[in-house]
Simulated scan of single mutants.
Amino acid sequence: MTDKAAEGYESGGEAAQEAGAKGPDELRRQIERTRSQLGDTVEELAGKADVKGRVQARAADMRDRAGAMTVQLRSSAAQAGHTVQGKATQAGHAVQDRANRAGHTVEHNLPEPVRNAVHAGARHRGPMVAAGVAVGAVAAVAVLRHRRHGR
């Protein structure tokens, strides 16, 4: 160490002692505060360096979001399914009323492909409802994506 460095070290030490600690007890308190601050800083740095922990926390957050979105999509799909079922019921009643006014059966007024679809739907109600819910879910996802991305 050079003489100037030694002087600066000694005078810096004295300046620090004069400006900071007013005795051994005060110096001990300052040291304890500095240790505590250093510990906090090391803890923060360790948290930032814990990539695995941060990834796990992010994954847990994403799972929570996905769960919430699943609930929302199921609700939207169920609502869409009910809407589709209601519209189909209204259309069926309209066709029935029209057939009744004309004195015909409903099947008489429907084209052959529609008649076949109605008969298949009557025989297999469960899959038809599931298909309606699936169509509703696809529509709900499309609407949500459109709203989110503005496209």
Rank of each mutant, 00 (worst) to 15 (best):
K52H: 11
Q56T: 07
R65M: 08
A49R: 09
A60T: 11
L45W: 05
A59G: 09
A120N: 10
A139R: 04
E112N: 11
L38M: 14
G126P: 01
P24H: 13
E112G: 06
R145M: 13
L45D: 07
S36I: 12
G8R: 15
S75W: 12
N116Q: 11
A140L: 04
Q72T: 15
R145N: 15
R147P: 00
V114Q: 04
D40N: 13
V141D: 03
V129M: 03
R28P: 07
S76D: 11
Q96D: 07
A120Y: 04
A91H: 03
Q85N: 14
P113N: 05
A94N: 07
T41R: 15
V71E: 15
H108L: 05
N116K: 08
V95G: 00
H149F: 15
G132R: 00
A131N: 04
R28E: 15
R29M: 09
G121L: 00
T2V: 13
H146Y: 06
E107I: 05
A19C: 10
P24Q: 14
D50L: 02
Q56V: 12
P111V: 04
A137S: 05
D64L: 09
Q79Y: 11
L27F: 08
A6L: 15
Q30G: 04
E26T: 07
K87P: 06
E112Y: 07
L38D: 11
P24A: 13
R145S: 13
A16R: 08
A16C: 10
A77N: 01
Q56H: 13
G8Y: 15
R74Q: 15
S36C: 10
G23L: 00
P111N: 05
R115L: 07
E26F: 01
E32N: 08
K22I: 02
K48Q: 13
R98Q: 12
H119V: 15
A91W: 00
H108E: 10
D50A: 03
Q85M: 12
S11G: 06
R35D: 11
L27D: 10
A66C: 05
A99C: 09
E44S: 10
R58W: 08
A49W: 14
A16T: 05
G67A: 07
R123Q: 14
A102K: 08
G136W: 00
A78D: 06
A66Y: 05
M1L: 10
L45P: 03
A88T: 05
H93W: 09
Q37T: 10
